[in-house]
């Protein structure tokens, strides 16, 4: 056996084991669908504009909590890409997020004050809304601090991309979550709402990602980047997962398993191959000045990781206004540069 990257399952009984794994995944998918169904009562519609949706609408889904600062730019960016309708779950914000979203003509808003963590970090709620509104449509599932980009995005709208994916028979597209950070301590430059976050978050880590394939779903597991380098040097295994499959032509039977990192059925995780497949990037704007204050809150709320205690030192470091920038950081210069660095790929979409 050649040593290295990713081994094929083989040996005696492999087929039987695969069958067993397939059945296990099916059960898991159905259980997650069941959870979403049960959690539907936790949602209360604030503004529901979904009856106007047509079959070609491209939807974006997000669970938000106190994101009034980030949301204006988030909406502008994704509107510019060609998202035609946004569906939000407002997890009990108290900074005017709910009112702001309700005023937007292309947003539908549901409210809940139940636990984010117990709802699988919002996924149960989102899954239910996707069953109802996403079926048959192209759906983007995002966090409020993520800006989705893909090859050619400034000149080709999302509908061109989704048409391309339809044409090549790929119902999903993968993306790397790219942590962007400022040149200097993260809390030092104040972010104004409606400002382009990329004016402040100018740098990223270009080439320190660790990739493996995880069984049984055969999803990639990408870790590394600035957070692994700065905060998880002693425990790399705990470093945040960075691959996502944010764009999927949804079917009500699909479920996201772990944030949007992996899905079931498992064929939706085949975002990679021998050659390069079309892939995008989620520009992660987490490290704006608000992170310092927020980290103190999150540490108390313990709503963001499955075993939150283990991440105390991570939050602790963040509250001390660290600098993620280093001499070897790469300045962000647009998608073509990202493609040249091998962070994303256009595949054969010329």
């Amino acid at each position: 056996m050649v040593p290295g990257l990713y081994e094929r399952a083989g040996g005696p009984g492999a087929r039987l084991r695969n069958l067993g794994a397939a059945y296990g995944m099916r059960r898991r998918r159905r259980r997650l669908l069941g959870r979403a169904f049960l959690k539907r009562r936790q949602l209360r519609a604030v503004v529901d504009r979904t009856p106007t949706l047509g079959p070609d609408d491209i939807l974006a889904f997000a669970t938000v909590r106190n994101e009034a600062d980030r949301l204006p730019w988030f909406l502008d960016h994704h509107r510019r890409l060609g998202v035609t309708h946004f569906i939000f779950v407002d997890n009990d914000s108290d900074d005017g997020t709910g009112a702001f979203l309700s005023d937007q003509p292309d947003c539908s808003v549901w409210h809940t004050s139940h636990s984010y963590k117990l709802s699988r970090f919002g996924l149960d709620w989102i899954t239910w809304l996707m069953i109802r509104h996403g079926h048959g449509r192209w759906c983007l599932v995002l966090d409020a601090d993520e800006l989705f980009i893909y090859p050619h995005w400034p000149t080709r709208p999302l509908s061109a991309l989704t048409e391309r994916l339809d044409q090549t028979g790929t119902p999903m597209m993968g993306a790397l979550m790219l942590d962007l950070y400022p040149q200097g301590p993260v809390g030092d430059t104040a972010y104004r709402p409606r400002q382009d976050p990329l004016e402040i978050l100018t740098h990223f880590d270009a080439g320190n990602y660790s990739i493996q394939v995880q069984r049984p779903m055969k999803n990639l597991w990408v870790q590394g980047g600035a957070r692994a380098r700065a905060f998880f040097g002693d425990e790399p295994r705990r470093a945040p997962t960075l691959q996502k499959v944010p764009l999927v032509r949804w079917h009500w039977r699909y479920v996201y398993v772990n944030s949007t990192h992996a899905l079931l059925p498992p064929r939706l995780n085949r975002i990679y191959g021998e050659g390069e497949t079309l892939s995008g990037v989620l520009l992660h704007t987490k490290f704006l000045d608000s992170i310092v204050k927020r980290s103190a809150e999150e540490r108390l709320r313990q709503e963001h990781f499955a075993n939150s205690d283990l991440y105390n030192s991570y939050y602790e470091s963040l509250t001390q206004n660290p600098s993620l920038w280093c001499e070897a950081s790469t300045p962000y210069r647009g998608w073509r540069a990202l493609e040249g660095l091998g962070v994303m790929s256009r595949g054969d979409w010329v």
Binding site: L176, E276, T277, S345, D348
Partner: peptide
Amino acid sequence: ALERRVRGRPGLYMVGRFPRNDS
């Protein structure tokens, strides 16, 4: 583009490319 789609850039491992080890 065809070459990139079918074989990819050698030695690059990323979200869109992760070859099996025996291939």
